[in-house]
Design a protein around this nucleic acid. Structure first.
Length: 265
DNA sequence: ATGGTGGATGCTCCA
């Protein structure tokens, strides 16, 4: 049986608990990685999620902002909690899956509006976060280790990952410096982009559509900010990848949609 | 060129 793994920036797990349960029933993932749960650990809806079959839970939240979680129907072991840029802001969780697969769930800083680290401290934080994760992966991890990295990386690296490459060159999420830093991060252990493995360029593919559009579906001005990567030992195990675009049209939707891969283990 | 929406929180921050 292949392993089904989903990543989703849920934008408040309490507000969208019904949508999470719908995702579980509809897509039946074995493992779900959430970002922006926006809740402290004590208020995370553990029981409702366990009752839906996801008994194994790694929750790393904080009050109001950020926060990541890994929910699983199969046993997993919690990895070391790491903090980045000297902040306790709950942007990374690690799990060990059966088969000795190391799973990383990231919520990379959004970076604010101005794409200049001097004028904008949030952009500086984003770049520093990328540098630190790159240094750590490069020093501490080997490409021969089976690993999966997922999350809201808040960068759309390819021209076909955005609705207009030219119009987004100066927009945070698609600037050359961010794309370059994400490329360096991807190069650390030769991460394979599992989604583009099945949906290669130049086909357009998005996972996020702004709440501010009058009609997200009609304008379709999306970006691919959410990613699933695997290390080279798992490349041959990849079976499928899909973006649940329909979820953007759900009642009270998140602005991000779930991304799922299937992997033979 | 601008402002548009949504979530958590508590009279404003973040995305």
């Amino acid at each position: 049986m292949p392993l089904r793994l989903t990543t989703w920036n849920i934008n408040s797990v309490r507000l969208r608990l019904p949508l999470l349960l719908r995702l579980m029933q509809q897509e039946k993932p074995d493992v779900i990685c959430l970002q922006e749960i926006k809740v402290e650990d004590g208020l995370f809806p553990r029981e409702a999620i366990a009752a839906a079959g996801y008994e194994h839970q790694i929750v790393r939240g904080m009050k109001g902002y950020n926060g990541v979680a890994i929910l699983s129907r199969i046993p997993l072991e919690r990895g070391e909690d790491r903090s980045w840029c000297d902040r306790a802001d709950s942007r990374h969780a690690i799990a060990m899956l059966p088969g000795n697969i190391e799973l990383h769930n990231f919520y990379i800083p959004s970076g604010g509006d101005i794409p200049d680290p001097v004028q904008n401290a949030k952009f500086a934080h984003k770049l520093q976060f990328l540098d630190q994760v790159t240094d750590w992966l490069g020093a501490e991890r080997k490409r021969s280790r089976p690993m999966i990295l997922v999350g809201d990386l808040n960068i759309a690296p390819l021209e076909c990952d955005v609705w207009s490459h030219k119009q987004l060159l100066d927009v945070v999420s698609h600037t050359p410096i961010e794309v370059e830093k994400l490329s360096r991060l991807q190069g650390t252990v030769e991460w394979v982009d599992a989604v583009r493995h099945f949906a290669p360029p130049p086909g357009k593919l998005y996972t996020w559509w702004s709440y501010r559009a009058r009609d997200w579906l009609a304008s379709d001005r999306g970006r691919r900010l959410d990613h699933v990567w695997v290390t080279p030992p798992l490349r041959k195990n990849l079976r499928s990848a899909s973006v649940l675009r329909d979820a953007r049209g759900w009642q009270r939707a998140s602005d991000h949609v779930p991304v799922t891969i299937e992997l033979d283990t």
